[in-house]
Design a binder for these strands. Structure first.
Lengths: 201, 201
DNA sequence: CGACCATTTGATGGGCTTCAAGAGCAGTGG
DNA sequence: CCACTGCTCTTGAAGCCCATCAAATGGTCG
């Protein structure tokens, strides 16, 4: 599963320190909920998802991580499980070599708070639109965006059912806000109306 | 408004450093959303609430903080506003004297994730029950719990309306799970059924 | 008392979940 | 090549939960 390459140079912002470049296949588990949190990661390429399982058995996808994103910056134990959604290349940094930068932690905290805002008092349309816009910002600016995650992943991320996600996606397509090429590729046809749907008036 | 006392000793876990003890009245603003985050705080006594305003004008109460809780550990700028819900005594630590412990940050991150879990796929009963149980754990173990926050605060914290909060509270009382003494005091009559309502089967 | 505010309670409607079924697609094997 | 299987995704119909609209109650303060 994991192929390790020798020492690699971490990206800017991260002080020089031992960082191992790790290569993983689609579906590989990076760490599990409850494991001792002895490393934190930065995505070089590919997409990672983190999720946790709730008391009632529901799955909560807490985030999708792209190039440059940091995850697993918890202290002590991981609060979530991390999996490779596509083949990925990661930089792995040991906590022993210094705590995860408080910069990384507070970035995580900020995104957690943004994520909370997504839930409160927001309709399915608002959630999905906000999600699509966030994804659209991620890679290059092309209006064609790739959704490496399943509908089920999106639903578990947005706190909806796959039915509602699918219905809302179809609704956006019907109204020419997006067009659905296939399951994993959509085009944003009208950024303005999409951001309007997201509630950013 | 703020009465500052000389140097005080921070609580365990926090290395010796300059910490100012601050005393505030009910309603005082501790910091505002967007302010430069130059201090972080630990509650000595009283209750603090943090909130942010969303694009649509809605208010989101992101947390209530009791004795020993840390808030305002953001880097750069505060993401939320903090207010004294009751008269409070706080320890105030400057960021300049070292970053907020990554311990404090990751505690904040953990509680943010717990908070997210509260939102996803949970009914009004589950949310309110979980909230009441969290509050009940906060001070001493007495079954009488105090709610220094208004129904509106609770609603904005749980992503519900005051109507639903009130209705659900009445429903719990009708079913003898809690009893409502007055607006700010309730008793938990049946912890087991309350935790059951919270979804912790 | 009377004004004001927070809270409670009732009635109605809308949005999302749930239940149910069908469509599209990859893999397997005859 | 084509059934057959299993999966994800889509779509339709019905019901429930919560927001909304509306009004009554209770407490505080002048």
């Amino acid at each position: 599963m994991a192929r390790l390459s020798p020492i690699a140079e971490p990206s800017e912002g991260v002080p020089a320190r031992a960082a191992l470049q790790v290569q993983l296949d689609k579906g590989d588990v990076i760490f599990r909920q409850g494991d001792r949190a002895d490393h934190w990661y930065e995505v070089v390429s590919g997409v990672v998802r983190t999720c946790r399982f709730l008391a009632d058995g529901h799955r909560q996808i807490t985030g999708f991580f792209y190039n440059g994103d940091v995850f697993g910056a918890e202290a002590r134990r991981y609060q979530v499980m991390a999996e490779a959604l596509t083949p990925v290349v990661l930089l792995r940094c040991a906590h022993s070599e210094g705590p995860p930068q408080s910069a990384a932690l507070s970035r995580a905290l900020t995104s957690a708070q943004d994520y909370i805002a997504l839930f409160a008092h927001r309709t399915a349309s608002e959630r999905l639109a906000a999600f699509l816009m966030a994804i659209a910002r991620k890679p290059r600016g092309a209006q064609q965006i790739e959704l490496p995650m399943s509908r089920s992943d999106i639903a578990d991320h947005l706190g909806l059912t796959i039915h509602t996600v699918s219905r809302t996606m179809s609704d956006f397509a019907r109204r020419q806000i997006i067009s659905v090429e296939d399951r994993t590729h959509i085009c944003v046809l009208d950024h303005e109306r999409l951001s309007c749907e997201a509630g950013e008036l």
